[in-house]
């Protein structure tokens, strides 16, 4: 056990836990960040996506010890920001959400993409989402959701 601190959605937090505990479990169990989903636990699906030090990562692949001192944003944090609101609203308006299990992760991937490229074309969007699997939508409307986010959030990113 160790006390490990990091920044979670803009707030400094710390937790007493085994540094090998998965960040995914820490976020869900110790911080009730339930928007972070477990779809596979093997890095394949992206449902557990968070943004760590500005980068999209799969939180099931990250033990707490590796995240010490990191700046972590989860869907709980993103949805409170202007950018997050634009993405949520755009996804809702374009029909990008079906069962919704992949959606918070998709939002994180969309945010990570738009931070780097605020006017992505379709193939750039598809590439950026390629680690986030969705079984319901066939992706078309998610791609549209990201496009609309970029248009609506022109001045944000």
């Amino acid at each position: 056990m160790a006390k490990i601190s990091f920044i979670l959605n803009g707030e400094e937090v710390s937790v007493e836990a085994d540094p090998l505990k998965r960040l995914l479990d820490v976020l869900r169990e110790d911080f009730e960040a339930l928007g972070v989903k477990e779809g596979c636990g093997e890095g394949e699906c992206g449902a557990c996506s968070v943004i760590l030090d500005g980068k999209l990562v799969n939180s099931c692949m990250v033990p707490l010890g590796a995240a010490e001192g990191a700046d972590i944003v989860t869907p709980e944090g993103l949805r409170e920001t202007e950018k997050g609101k634009v993405i949520v609203e755009s996804f809702a308006d374009t029909g990008a959400v079906q069962c919704g299990f992949c959606t918070p992760g998709m939002m994180m991937a969309a945010e990570a993409l738009l931070e780097k490229n605020n006017n992505p074309d379709e193939s750039e969007i598809r590439e950026a989402l390629s680690g986030n699997l969705c079984r319901c939508t066939g992706y078309d409307l998610i791609v549209k959701g990201v496009k609309v986010s970029a248009e609506r959030g022109k001045d944000l990113w």
């Binding site: 989860t74 997050g84 996804f91 069962c99 959606t103 939002m107």
Partner: peptide, 21 residues
């Protein structure tokens, strides 16, 4: 005519509760 799905915002923002939540 398309409407906004009733569950879209809660799901997108991570508020919807699945069994493990």
């Amino acid at each position: 005519k398309s409407v906004r799905r009733v569950d879209a915002v809660a799901k997108a923002s991570g508020l919807a509760k699945y069994i493990s939540d």
